[in-house]
């Protein structure tokens, strides 16, 4: 009895690092954390502006067609706006979904597959979206004039 009462089990000191834990040695998770917040503030402005122009202003959704897009992208303001929105939203969203995968996909294999698919879609969408903004042709040859913005015939 006396022995039981005096012999405490050996436990490691509080706050000592878990043994065998792999440290990351880098600050990338911190940079990601900061980026989520900085990009969030910018995205709020960019996306609310985008939704106002495309859903509220004028006839809202009914006004959107090829001519509408051509009219917007004739202005460098909206080109830069959409470009920033594309890149920031894709990095913010990809990083966020990466966190979600890390939280729920417990098997290493599953994580590798899901994250590969995630990064692949990131590259495809960002490259495609960027090319679309910069190679856009508002007056494609041979298209019916009534589908084009009015400045094509002027």
């Amino acid at each position: 009895m006396a022995q039981l009462a005096t012999q405490a089990p050996t436990v490691s000191a509080p706050r000592s690092p878990r043994s065998g834990r792999r440290t990351t040695r880098t600050n990338y998770e911190l940079y990601g954390w900061v980026f989520m917040r900085a990009s969030g503030v910018l995205l709020l402005v960019l996306i609310f502006g985008h939704l106002f122009m495309n859903l509220i202003d004028g006839d809202g959704i009914n006004a959107i067609d090829f001519g509408f897009v051509a009219g917007k992208w004739a202005s460098p303001l909206w080109q830069v706006w959409d470009l920033l929105m594309l890149w920031l939203a894709m990095i913010h969203g990809t990083n966020g979904v990466r966190t979600i995968i890390n939280d729920y996909a417990e098997r290493t294999g599953t994580r590798v597959v899901l994250k590969s698919a995630l990064y692949l879609s990131f590259v495809v969408v960002v490259v495609l979206g960027t090319l679309v903004i910069f190679t856009f042709d508002p007056c494609p040859a041979g298209a019916p004039a009534d589908l084009l913005p009015s400045f094509c015939t002027a």
Binding site: F66, G129, F136, A143
Partner: peptide
């Protein structure tokens, strides 16, 4: 982004 990219296909 995929549906917007159709502006590069045709009006």
């Amino acid at each position: 982004v995929l549906d917007t990219s159709l502006v590069r296909v045709s009006p």
